[in-house]
Write a protein that binds this DNA or RNA. Structure first.
Lengths: 215, 215
DNA sequence: TAGATTGTTAATCGATTAACAATC
DNA sequence: TAGATTGTTAATCGATTAACAATC
């Protein structure tokens, strides 16, 4: 009995479940049925039950799901019960936005250091003294951060990515507009802002195709 | 003969085609086959031909596609040959990052004004004098921007969204962690950074499920 | 026990891939 | 004309939805 691969579509819905469960937990609601979850998330009850069952039988017939338990299970599945050491590459606009984003620390993400090159090295931005990207390799060997956040110009991204992989990084959150090449034991998640914006303009100009809020 | 709806999956691939075509056009390459495009994009040749044929027969049997022509067609399809007036709601980290992001203006996106409330009103950030969100409604009536970028805290997002819709906004690029409710003639595109980050940690913790760079 | 709701199997729907005739 | 490669139809694959037996 080999576990069957959980599809990307399912994985992308987990944060949504987590978010809504947090909201109803805060309201003091104890139990919830797939039908009620359907009403607030806009997904079908059937899909919700299918999705959750990939990870275990968290519900109970005739009762539904215990909100607190389900939320905590999903938290574990996503892996946000742990804490992570992250570094940021690039202290431009996006780098700064992430440095300063309170939401992360509270979810167990610790931005331990920030790298850039040239003039910027040594500057202090939001409590971070910018480190020299030329010394990245030694840094990785010594400090073993798990996550690297790429917020540097497109042209430099692949090169830095290679060094990150070499240095043992486990996950890369990439904000540069490139499809980075890396071995598949290092996880890549892209935030391609330009592609997102283009999707917006596409639908503004082709309203007929717009599926509504299904994305 | 009614046009059949173009699926979200196809629409999300258009920016990718656009980006790679730009790259090979810069190299001075004149023609390209679906097979060559397959090699650089990682998509199958069959899928590429299917995708492009949703929008017209841009290719030629025995020849392939003319790079410049195809790129320019996709540009029109996505709608980035036009220019857009955009406003930003919120001058926090993300608001600032977008204000300052050069890539946008060059693609025809003009950030004409930035709104916030309280102390921040009247401040000057990157050439923008922050306007009062309380005066948003009059502003919209007068200036008719097409795109609004929501970069304010989650709790306030829906309310501001309602006013944007009321004021005739055509597209919303939303950075707040909420599923905004709006009529389906207003286009919504979300950038949910927390969900993206959770996808990263999920796969870091469940490498078996990781599909590689298929997203 | 009766009612509710899950977990799970089967049916449907949609998207991707394969194949090939059309045609440059 | 022969070779190449598209446009398009058909086959396959996968994801979503529907249905219902299991069970709390």
């Amino acid at each position: 009995m080999t576990k069957t691969r959980v599809s990307l579509a399912v994985v992308k819905r987990l944060p949504k479940y987590y978010r809504y469960l947090g909201m109803i937990e805060e309201k003091g609601i104890i139990r919830v049925s797939s039908q009620e979850l359907s009403a607030i998330t806009g997904l079908t009850a059937s899909q919700i039950r299918q999705d959750l069952n990939h990870f275990g039988g968290f519900g109970q017939q005739g009762y539904g799901y215990n909100v607190e338990e389900l939320r905590s299970e999903i938290e574990k599945i996503i892996g946000i019960n742990k804490s992570y050491k992250a570094i940021i590459l690039g202290c431009g606009n996006i780098g700064k936005a992430i440095m300063n984003y309170k939401g992360f620390k509270s979810s167990g993400f610790n931005i331990v250091d920030v790298f850039d090159h040239g003039d910027k090295v040594g500057n202090k931005i939001f409590d971070y003294e910018i480190k020299d990207v030329d010394k990245l390799d030694e840094y990785l060997a010594e400090n073993k951060p798990e996550i690297a956040i790429i917020a540097i110009p497109t042209e430099q991204a692949q090169k830095v990515c290679d060094r990150l992989v070499e240095g043992g990084i486990k996950g890369i959150w990439n904000f540069a507009s490139v499809d980075l090449k890396l071995p598949k034991n290092v996880v890549l998640e892209n935030v391609h802002l330009d592609e997102s914006l283009y999707t917006l303009t596409y639908y503004m100009n082709n309203l007929f195709d717009y599926p509504g809020t299904k994305n």
